[in-house]
């Protein structure tokens, strides 16, 4: 992973970083507090929801994994605006940004340890759309009874892996599905009731 950053193509971040980060954070907080609810992030930053989340949560303390062959535009933009180190391996990342098609098996990422489960990675997975796919029913903290979502573009076995992720609670990855500027939260506490 090269340390050189080509700044020529780097576009702007938040126009007003302080209020923008606060609004985006509240959106992400809402999404993870109410899993399965579609939340639109209030941001005009590049790269849609993933860009907004990166600007809001990443800095020099958060190693990031962008896949084996990361898209240079996003990687440079991220390094420039957030100053976050790129993780050498998936397991060392505290944040992961990937398109659903590039998603490796989830067990490659750090799921925390028994005493410090909070050290687990947060995954932001970009999809073509959050509707129009096979429906999946969710339950658990943040969901009154049941919540159904139908994100489009996840690999066939994603929901089995998500169920396995829940099964190892308190360990587990916390996942945010993103399409455009809309996100849906899938924290590790969410139970997957029907596999899509």
């Amino acid at each position: 992973m090269t340390m050189t950053v080509d700044l020529s193509g780097v576009s702007a971040g938040f126009a007003e970083p302080v209020p923008a980060a606060q609004r985006v954070f509240r959106g992400v907080l809402d999404a993870l507090s109410r899993p399965g609810t579609l939340v639109r992030l209030d941001s005009t930053a590049d790269f849609g929801a993933k860009g907004a989340i990166a600007l809001t949560l990443l800095d020099y303390e958060t190693p990031v994994w962008l896949g084996e062959n990361p898209e240079p535009a996003f990687g440079n933009w991220l390094r420039f605006h957030c100053g976050c180190p790129l993780a050498a391996t998936p397991a060392q990342a505290s944040f992961v940004f990937l398109d659903a098609v590039d998603l490796p098996p989830l067990d490659q990422f750090h799921a925390g340890d028994a005493k410090y489960p909070d050290t687990a990675a947060t995954l932001v997975i970009t999809l073509p759309a959050l509707t129009g796919g096979a429906p999946v029913t969710l339950a658990g903290p943040g969901i009154q009874t049941r919540q159904t979502i139908a994100p489009l573009g996840l690999a066939p076995d994603f929901w089995r892996q998500a169920a396995d992720n829940r099964a190892q609670f308190q360990l587990g990855l916390d996942i945010i599905l993103a399409a455009g500027d809309v996100i849906v939260g899938l924290p590790r506490s969410t139970r997957i009731l029907t596999e899509g």
């Binding site: 970083p17 302080v18 980060a21 606060q22 954070f25 992400v28 907080l29 993870l32 507090s33 809001t56 949560l57 990443l58 800095d59 303390e61 958060t62 410090y116 489960p117 909070d118 687990a120 947060t122 903290p141 943040g142 609670f169 308190q170 587990g172 916390d174 924290p187 590790r188 506490s189």
Partner: peptide, 23 residues
């Protein structure tokens, strides 16, 4: 802002692991 990001990350983990105390 750096402190806020650190606290925000802790809050999100706290929400994802209900009842667990995040340092």
């Amino acid at each position: 802002e750096q402190t806020k990001r650190m606290i925000r990350r802790a809050i999100l983990k706290a929400v994802a692991i209900p009842g667990y105390q995040v340092p």
